[in-house]
Each structure stands twice: as structure tokens, then as C-alpha cells.
Design a protein around this nucleic acid. Structure first.
Ligand SMILES: [Mn+2]
Ligand SMILES: [Mn+2]
Ligand SMILES: [Mn+2]
Ligand SMILES: [Mn+2]
Lengths: 221, 221
DNA sequence: AATCCAACTTTGATGATTCAAAGTCTCGGC
DNA sequence: GCCGAGACTTTGAATCATCAAAGTTGGATT
């Protein structure tokens, strides 16, 4: 069985690959080092082990990409992570701002059997508390590309679909604004020079978000 | 924070100390090696690390005993183990015969915050699915000594309190007999020569248990 | 008392994962 | 075409947990 460390590397390679449109899916060693929280030299060493395990392809000074096996493992870890997050929120009543940290540990301790019980109990959900898609047991993920508040249509009624930041403080802020996944929202205006977006959650006080914050809130509709 | 390995050693020292009335609570290295599943040499090495951490006292060729800190840690791990077992049975619907193995892993991944949520959700239970007492958050355990079916009064109505074996096959057998914790039961007879106990679970077919099996079923009342 | 044995400890080695520091490559700018 | 900077790799060493095999020990057996 893959070690916790291997699971973390593979998961981070997958996540980093998702975020970057540019490169041909190749994740740089520096990016991976930052994501995993180790120095670059460690990643070089570890990636060689992942290659030996058939989980990644590695081009020296280029980067890594997941093999089919590596992606399968990554999606499995991600499924565990996200189902656990939802369990913690819905069943144990934890706040959505704190479940990510808990799930980072629990994602390595949940067996397939327990995982499918959690899935059943929650009614086979498709998204976690942050709106992140939950991979299916077979490893399929909803890959829908969504617009953020920084780029969506102005004046049209929308709905928050996903918040792509795990920082508890940010999530609590989003909560206070009423911009949680599922909330109805309208972008009332945008000021490129000021790097500001004026957002009105349905039946709430309007909020002004800077570009960086607006980019983290994805909408649908 | 203690490593998973350290948590396991300390827990096993505690459990081994509970089982053996004889020795002054000293757990032998061989017993510990068997409990943890490593060779004796590894235990000698590891125990020195535990001494350095202030978790155990060690007398070479004598054995180990937990310090106050060691016992506190052991009880904390045990609380996690047993609350997790109950969660798995009551909330996720797993069978009591399979939760021990799951809890062996999860007991190292549950934070204090999650643990207390589980405790609250389950209504601060005092025993797990096997009837094992759940240590309180402050580290108190119910230390009641119970008689087993091998030694309790004959002909008196009793109640199964605890089953002290984690083997799935044995637990499933107990389940089939109707000897689960909580079940009413009467010992109808005992044959020392045959090493056999005739047991009648309330409203069920009587079963004959060998001494070894009878010793694992503890009763109250 | 001499011996033996089982249990225990020591020793030497390995694998996994990590870091610090030194070495190397590549790409953009001159 | 040369050079430097930043990104990357290599090297050497450390930590943790483990095993195999060899060395000890304390007490039981005769
Ligand atoms: Mn998360
Ligand atoms: Mn999430
Ligand atoms: Mn158990
Ligand atoms: Mn139990």
C-alpha cells in the first residue's frame, strides 16, 4: 500500500496540475516542494521513488506528470478527503472552515469499506462543503470549468458554486458575507483600475472584494 | 506529538498490564513484542525511546510500566479507539466484528475536536460495541472486574456485559448465538471435566461453549 | 555447583523520508 | 556566443522504526 507520504505527493501533483492551465500538465519540482511543504531536494529524491512505483513520469528539469495509476490514486485520496470533509460538516457539525485540516489527516486512515459507508450515509454527494467536486468511486470527476466573481457576467443572478481556498480565516469571511456555495449572488459592478468587484449576495449587504478574493469564489448559472 | 508507533506501544503496554493480574503491572518485553507485532529486539530499542520520552519506566530483564504520562496517553488513544468503534457501528452501520481493525488506524487520525464531537453525537457513551469501557476525556475508566461465563453463578439470570476478543470470526459466532453485550443470559450448567459451559441466551437456543470461549464473555447482574 | 535454556539485549544493517549545502543546468539578456 | 540567476539535482548526513543474528543473563534443572 502507498505510504501517507506517497499519497500526499500524488494528491498535490494532481491538484497543482489542475490549477495550472499553461504547461502540458507538467508540475515543476519547486511548485511540488511548496505544495508538500519540503525543500526541493527532497522532492527530487521522492519523485524518483514515485517513478519507480509507476505513479509519475518525470522529466529532469521539466517536471512531473501523473501516470494513469498515479491519477487513480490521487483521485482516490481526493475522494476520501472530500467525503470526510462533508461527513465532518453534516454529521459531526464541524465548521466548513476547519474541516480541511482534519481531512488532511483522516484521508489516510479511511478504508474503502468505511468510505463507501460515508458515501451512502451522505447520499452519494457530488461536491464537498467548499463546492469541490467529489471523484466517484471509479475515479471520475466533474471537470466543469467555472467563472469566478472576477470574470463572470455583471448584473446577472448567479449562484456560488465553489470557494477555492482552504484558509479558515478566508472561509469564515466568506461565511460572514453570505457567499457560501449555494448562495444566490449578483455582481453589481467591477472596477478594473481599483482591482475591485462589488458583489451582492441575495438579501444581504453588498460587499467589495479585491481581485484576489473574487477569483477564489466560483459561480454558476 | 507522539508518533503512531509510540501511541501503539503505549496502548499495548496498558492493555497487557490490564490483562495480567499477577506481576506488579510489569509488562515483559516478549509480551509487548507479540502485542505490537515486532521482534523483541525492536521493543528493547523502542522502549528506551519511550523512557527518554518519560512515558514508561523500564527495568532491564524485568519489564516496562507506564508512567503517569504514559498512562494518560494510553487512555487517550483508547478513548479514541473505542469512540471510533461505536461511531462506525452506530452511525455508519458497520458490523461490530469489523470495527476493531478500522479503529486501529483511525485512532491515530482523530483530533481532540473531532473526538469530542463524536462523543457528543453518541451521547457520551460509557462502553464501546464490545462492552469495553470508554475512558473519559479526563482519563478515568470504569475498572469494574466482571465474571465470565466460565466462573459466574449457575442458574441465575445474567446479562452479557463485554466480549473480550476482537477476532471477527469469534464476534460473528457470538452474534449468531445471541450473546452480544446487553443480552440476557443464564448459565444452565458447567462440566469442569469436559471444560464445557451450557449457556442459554434469553429466548434462544442454548449453546455449549468451551472454557476458552466462555472466559471471553463477561457478564453482570 | 555445573549446565542449560528461554528471554532478553546488542550490534550492524536497511528502508523511508527528510534537510543543508554544494554542484549543475538552462534560459534570457547582453 | 557568453554570463548570471534561479531552478533544479546531487551529496552527505540525520531520524525513526525495523529486522537478523550474535551475545548475555538469570534462574530452573539436574
Ligand atoms: Mn480540503
Ligand atoms: Mn474541500
Ligand atoms: Mn477494538
Ligand atoms: Mn472494542
Amino acid at each position: 500500500m502507498p505510504s501517507i507520504t506517497v499519497e500526499n505527493y500524488v494528491k498535490q501533483i494532481y491538484l497543482a496540475g489542475q490549477q495550472q492551465q499553461p504547461t502540458g500538465g507538467q508540475v515543476s519540482m519547486g511548485r511540488l516542494a511548496a505544495a508538500v511543504g519540503v525543500v526541493p531536494g527532497t522532492v527530487t529524491t521522492m519523485v524518483k521513488a514515485l517513478v519507480a512505483d509507476g505513479l509519475v513520469d518525470y522529466e529532469p528539469r521539466g517536471g512531473v506528470t501523473l501516470t494513469r495509476d498515479g491519477e487513480r490514486l490521487a483521485l482516490h485520496v481526493l475522494r476520501r478527503h472530500r467525503l470526510v470533509e462533508l461527513l465532518l460538516v453534516r454529521v459531526l457539525g464541524l465548521d466548513w472552515s476547519e474541516v480541511h485540516a482534519e481531512a488532511e489527516v483522516l484521508e489516510h486512515a479511511v478504508s474503502d469499506k468505511v468510505l463507501e459507508r460515508i458515501d451512502a450515509l451522505l447520499g452519494s454527494p457530488t461536491v464537498d462543503p467548499h463546492g469541490d467536486p467529489i471523484p466517484s468511486a471509479k475515479g471520475k470527476v466533474d471537470g466543469t470549468r467555472r467563472h469566478s466573481l472576477a470574470e463572470c457576467t455583471v448584473g446577472r443572478p448567479l449562484r456560488v458554486a465553489r470557494v477555492t481556498d482552504q484558509d479558515p480565516a478566508f472561509l469564515q469571511f466568506i461565511d460572514r458575507c453570505g457567499l457560501v456555495p449555494g448562495a444566490a449572488v449578483t455582481v453589481e459592478g467591477r472596477d478594473a483600475s481599483a482591482d475591485a468587484v462589488l458583489v451582492r449576495p441575495d438579501g444581504r449587504r453588498a460587499v467589495t472584494l479585491g481581485g484576489a478574493a473574487a477569483e477564489k469564489v466560483l459561480v454558476e448559472g
